[in-house]
Write a protein that binds this DNA or RNA. Structure first.
Lengths: 340, 340
DNA sequence: TTGAAAGCGGTACCAG
DNA sequence: CTGGTACCGCTTTCAA
């Protein structure tokens, strides 16, 4: 493996020049830059990540805490992960996995070893053991999901309250006086992910404001169960029935159940509203889409943490620019490198 | 952040002693070890990963190439990932994601930057662009899935041929003369994952050996489609119908379809055989399980690469032990550190 | 059984 | 605009 020293020798410049060509942190004449770049290409040079991390105090790696629970929505978790990893690369960051079964200490470890510059925490629950740990860690982090006490934390999530409200409002405007909310599955509700609560709050508020009656039925696992729930809802409905089914798994079942009961979606019988357009596209069914998509959330999370990360750097640099002249005048020697 | 120097000072020993306490690479008196360990605990010391990687030439990180395809089985991919990450930690390795959309160069990059000590490649296809790249890379790697030309590569996968054969044999022993194979979905078949081929080979061989008639129907996306397929299969069947449904998505549909057609599983009508017991447990249906589970495959992949990794190290050390006396006698100086 | 010191491969300061 | 050089924090050699 060639080193930057090899590149320097081949290009006939000093090692520091090679470094500056890579970082662009100081002006380089066109001529030297070209020579250096040619040498790098010729040797297929790649900077050593460890050495760079050691010297620069930044690993260019973001830790991603993934949930351990063999839950129902592993598919959507996977979607988050791959979008996060791809987005991070756009800003020259890599993603290191931190599994949940290592517990909160896992986070302390990767930060303590200075393996990562920042953290993204997935599936944050209302009362999450990782939150107090994160607060103490000396790196920026972004949470996906909103804990009970979110003060001073960077959180991001779909706006479930808004989504819930919009679902009801949309249906009310279409003339529905009664709507049925097919809730998340029990397993999800029991974990304290509070987006369920937030969605309900949005639904309730909008229902009160628009004078809409809301029937709530629990989420189901089987078609048979869903058919029963739908039948019951139909009985209590005045006029055209309408459904809100925020959970993806339920959407499939609901669509199937309605079909089995002879109802044609969007035409003579009922309307389904949800937070995700993925299913809608796949099944070519008239669904309405509301709120952020998972990939949108993922991308935003990465952008935020990258911003945090570069902010810290550039703020440090600005500060240095400001004090440099003062230092010079005083002829004192102070470390300009940031010390953690 | 405290450094090993701080630990050394506090314990009243040299930095090298601290290092040897951590690595165990040379005998340390009980007394000093205790002093050092106390100091480490008191300072909450964590070794700097970059520095360690630089000096030792090993990052203790394994790169994991994950598929980009927003495919149908994202759930199972997620399962692989989390088991791999958890298992790697057991051997003190971390997992760095390499997304497929960076292409094969992504692999060259993480290896070139010496970010990773080895690679695990997921979802390897019959003719995979990453394979030729992997062959050239100077680090060990393990493929999950088997490419067309697998010579000299460490591959691991469930034994699909065996699974296919066992499915047929099991049904034949139960007295079935005709079995229906519900194939993988088109999207999967079209990608050149050759486990589909291998499964079919196993089925065909066993069918020939047992004199069983096999009806093959394509995988479906909707219940309606599945019901049609099942109906057709029933017509061509002599005696009690039996089904083989290797793909998880199909299993759900198939079970539902049989139910809708009034057939009770495992009782008066039909038997379903598949490669995975997960669904069976979840749905409490009499399914037979065959072959490796995904998590088993994941664990094996990690164990293998860790073995490769430690083998290299220990072989190097053994070699050094052997030549050391020779070197001493000759009073010559030779670099003992491995140079890449 | 231990310590001193020379790297590992970059970064960024200082001086020119 | 460029070169020389002192680190970054850990590992491993040599010498005691």
């Amino acid at each position: 493996m060639p080193t930057s020293k090899d590149v320097a020798r081949l290009a006939g410049v000093s090692q520091s020049t090679v470094s500056y060509v890579m970082s662009g942190r100081r002006p380089i004449s066109e001529k030297t830059r070209k020579r250096v770049e040619d040498a790098m290409a010729q040797l297929a040079f790649q900077p050593n990540a460890g050495a760079r991390a050691l010297a620069s105090r930044r690993s260019q790696v973001i830790g991603l805490a993934i949930p351990f629970v063999p839950d129902l929505h592993m598919g959507s978790i996977m979607e988050f992960i791959s979008v996060i990893a791809a987005t991070a690369r756009q800003s020259d960051y890599d993603i290191l996995l931190v599994t949940d079964d290592e517990g909160p200490q896992g986070l302390e470890r990767v930060v303590g070893q200075q393996l990562v510059d920042g953290l993204i925490i997935m599936q944050v629950e209302g009362d999450d053991a990782r939150v107090p740990v994160i607060r103490k860690l000396p790196v920026p982090s972004v949470l996906i999901g909103i804990p009970e006490d979110s003060k001073g934390l960077e959180c991001i999530d779909a706006d479930f309250e808004l989504a819930g409200a919009m679902c009801v409002e949309e249906l009310a405007q279409l003339g529905h006086e009664t709507v049925t909310l097919v809730d998340w599955q029990d397993a999800v509700v029991r974990r304290h992910v509070n987006y369920v609560k937030r969605f309900h709050r949005g639904v309730d508020k909008a229902a009160a404001a628009t004078g809409t009656k809301v029937i709530k039925v629990p989420g189901r696992v089987t078609i048979a169960g869903m058919e029963k729930a739908v039948t019951k809802a139909l009985k209590e409905t005045n006029g055209i029935p309408a459904f809100i089914a925020p959970e993806a798994a339920n959407q499939d079942l609901l669509v199937e159940a309605l079909h089995n009961l002879g109802l044609v979606l969007g035409e003579d019988a009922s309307v389904v509203v949800n937070c995700s357009d993925r299913i809608a596209e796949r099944q070519r069914i008239p669904l309405t889409t509301i709120g952020f998509e998972p990939d949108e959330v993922s991308r935003r999370a990465v952008h935020r943490i990258v911003r945090d990360l570069t902010d810290t750097t550039s703020r440090a640099h600005e500060a240095l620019e400001l004090i440099r002249p003062v230092l010079k005048r005083r002829k004192s020697t102070i470390r300009l490198r940031p010390q953690r």
